[in-house]
Amino acid sequence: MAHPTSGPAAGPQIREIRSAGTIRMAIPLVALAAALIAPFWFYPIFVMKFLCFALFAAAFNLLLGYTGLLSFGHAAFFGGGAYFTAHVVKIWGLTPELGLIVGTLGAAALGLVIGAIALRRSGIYFTMITLALAQMFYFFCLQAPFTHGEDGLQLGPRGHLFGVIDLGQAMNLYYFVLAVVLIGMFVIWRFVNSPFGMILRSIRDNEQRAISLGYSVQAYKLGAFVMSAALSGLAGGLKALVFQLATLTDVAWQMSGEVVLMTLIGGIGTQAGPVVGSGVFIALQNNLATSDFPVTIIMGVVFMVCVLVFRRGIVGNSLPRASGGRLG
């Protein structure tokens, strides 16, 4: 091949391995404690927005970081999940948790279709196909009556969880969102560290070898794609419940770009990266929303700078240089 892909750069690897173990235990606990008390310091809606996007970025990273597939169409799953959840809660009048389940399953089904088509090609073509199919879904949402077009699907009162707990109360809603996001994160963590996840990493690092070892690479990739789509749908459904709104913004291609940027800022292929990245991104977006300077320019420049000089992201740079890893 004329253009060599980047191999793992040699670097100090053994450094700090011992202390890394303790830190790795401590960070999630500190983060959990912070998440539990966060709504007392910050505006709860802001923290919930961050949580939804953290889950979305983590789900996206499952595919890019651990399988090596760059999807540029994840807005379809996020926005699709939002629409499905909103439809179930508003039109069918069911409880929020059922809405989330339908949102997740709907996004998974969408992921199965889009993934099966896009995985016919690999590399850069895969990325373009996911973008094109997501755009097709966008046009479908633009015209389909159930999305209410430009107005979006607006939810009424937030409803009762399991028919009992009133989600109209800000704190109830916050801890419900936190619980769902933590469950989602746990699923991702389990998935990545399962034998299935190990095979995904072997595909990422050396697809030919994984094939020669007898793994059905296409099936594993599709599995990862559907998993990632389902969790993105869960994040989208949560977002719809928090903001009581599912709109075309959620399915537009800009959303797909945003989740790529969040993951890139935080660190592709790291557990904490997407969470940190989405935190930075949401904070940035919130601060810029009040000024009239367009977010798009900042996003574009951050993208270019990250790709040129900061490819390992915030979390990736703070870790000892990992072995393997095609990206980052």
Partner: peptide
């Protein structure tokens, strides 16, 4: 190759 795509995406946004 994905980095070229990401860079030019950033350029387009800018």
């Amino acid at each position: 190759h994905l980095y070229g795509l990401l860079f030019t995406f950033g350029l387009a946004l800018t």
